[in-house]
Design a binder for these strands. Structure first.
Lengths: 339, 339
DNA sequence: CTGAAAGCGCTTACAG
DNA sequence: CTGAAAGCGCTTACAG
């Protein structure tokens, strides 16, 4: 690979002149410009971005930390961030933590090592040492979903998990359900606990008590959904409706339901957080709370770019709307003998 | 942010010594080591990776170019690549081309600017100037799905699109279908044309002729699937079975089918390339060709890392198996008056 | 084992 | 408008 030195020699000018021609922002005489262009072409010169980053002090990269980029929700967030970033010539470095502290730490520390100009971060757990270190570097940070307790300064892009959950569960209750269950994630997962709060709030509002064994916390991924739903179905007295805390747990729930031959919504009603393209086509079509994943990514990107450009005022928090999409996976509870 | 200079001064040693302590691979006396560690702690020093990259000549990043990271398939590939890359301390820079030449060029050129040590690339179209430039830089490249014509050297990770398509379409024919259709992508999209070849091959094998109007090429994304299926349904004589070329076109096909009130598989049978978590739960469960997306990413990563470590021999091509998952979206063709 | 110094490849005041 | 030179923050032969 040719370097700027070689181009300069080839063109008979200084490296500064080459740099100027390439930057385009500075006037260089037509003759020299031409000679430089020639040399660039002949040598097939491509400026080294790493060197440029070092001298400019920025890399034009945004870091994105999610729990799993393979999750369609995270993938859409990434796409939104990428599109917004691209508008100003930024690229996106993604990392999946898998909710593992070690992976998160490695990723965040590497972001902090100036690899990246700013970072968007789906806060998996509360505040961690790596997050604190990141904050100390002064790199612009935007949180998605939730701001960890330690950091009070960085902006946040989120949806109103609790309210959305409350609304969805309210829908179940209005249909007549009195014995509801929730498949939730680990209690340290902010979105899981917020959605659980919403679930409890809805029940409380309607004077319902939630059975202890009907709140299955700590389940992650499709497999977690399967296990949690199995547990629920194994209960001596089955709840009549289940609220699933995300797209993966919903898939898992569907698997367990099918494996046990339980019919939705006749035997049990199901609602979930997160919508998926195929939910309308599932048997039965799944009622879901849709989050604007792509827009969350866009908004995170916009916020970061605003901070990077030193905007006077950057919103401390932007709350994006969810949409409750009622389909057919919820119905009246089955008739119960004892009732 | 503290620099290595400041750490050195603070510890009363040379920057070389600081570098050595940090690298860990070189013996430094216990006293100096201790002083350096102290200084690092007190100054909260984090080595600047950009500078390190410049002097080492590598960034420890892998570039991944896909058409849309928001597509679940691409997201899984990304995850596989990330996991494999992480084993050797590499990270992944992703970019979505959206099949747009300009975006692809921008991304590839930036990869080529030494931003990245190697690149994995889902070949959207044939060979492009940017790909040629990339090849010229000598950066290790691995293609996914297909190797563009220009480049004959770089390894390839793929599935056998044509054979898998042929098998799936054969299944349709065995069920009795004689009038088949395909929703395909643009003809310049290698996977689309390979799958179309498989479709035609299966038909030809069984002596079937494919109606011109039954091959809907040029459709991309969910919307493309919708349009293509609508066109098919609007035909004076409807085909009895449809082969969809990927996950997104299948979603689109389902939408159009529903909007027109067509029942699958009674009125029309459907098979698609790409499986999705929810396909088993769709009404009816969708028969699909599953590709090992995650493993494709892993394999691409493995190949790249092998090239980076100067492995003696790197497979020129690795063909991963697909799996044909027969569910219920295909049945015998409906009885036709004229037959 | 340790330090002075060159080098990685750009950018950008500073002079002229 | 143009060039010489310092600087970005590391790494790594080269001496000692």
């Amino acid at each position: 690979m040719a370097s700027i030195r070689q181009v300069a020699e080839h063109a008979g000018v200084s490296t500064a002149t080459v740099a100027r021609v390439l930057s385009g922002r500075i006037t260089v005489s037509p003759e020299l410009t031409e000679r430089v262009r020639q040399a660039v072409d002949e040598l097939n010169y491509v400026p080294n971005d790493v060197a440029r980053s070092l001298s400019r002090g920025r890399t034009n990269m945004l870091g994105l930390l999610v729990s799993d980029i393979g999750n369609p929700f995270a993938a859409q967030v990434a796409r939104g961030l990428e599109d917004e970033a691209a508008r100003l010539g930024y690229q996106v470095l993604v990392g999946s933590s898998d909710f593992e502290l070690e992976r998160e730490t490695r990723l965040l520390d590497s972001f902090a090592a100036k690899t990246v100009d700013a970072v968007a971060l789906v806060s998996a757990r509360g505040s961690t040492p790596a997050m604190a270190r990141l904050a100390r570097t002064g790199l612009p940070v935007v949180y998605i979903d939730r701001r960890p307790d330690g950091d009070t300064a960085a902006p946040l892009v989120r949806t109103d998990n609790e309210t959305a959950a409350r609304q969805a569960v309210g829908h179940l209750i209005e249909l007549g359900h009195r014995d509801l269950a929730m498949i939730s994630g680990p209690s340290w997962l902010p979105t899981a606990s917020a959605r659980l709060r919403g679930f409890r709030a809805a029940c409380a509002e309607h004077g319902l008590t939630v059975r202890r064994e009907c709140v299955r916390e700590g389940h992650l991924g499709v497999e977690g959904g399967v296990r949690a739903m199995r547990d629920l179905l194994d209960l001596p007295e089955r709840p009549t409706a289940v609220f699933s805390f995300n797209n993966l747990s919903a898939v898992g729930a569907l698997r367990a339901l099918r494996e046990r031959g339980v019919t939705v919504p006749r035997d049990i009603s199901l609602v979930t957080f997160d919508d998926m393209d195929l939910f309308p086509f599932v048997d039965p079509p799944i009622t879901a709370i849709a989050q604007p994943a792509y827009e969350i990514g866009v908004e995170a990107g916009r916020t970061l770019l605003a901070m990077l450009s030193g905007a006077a005022v950057v919103p401390r928090e932007v709350v994006l709307p969810t949409e409750f999409r009622i389909r057919s996976s919820c119905a009246e509870p089955p008739h119960r003998e004892k009732v």
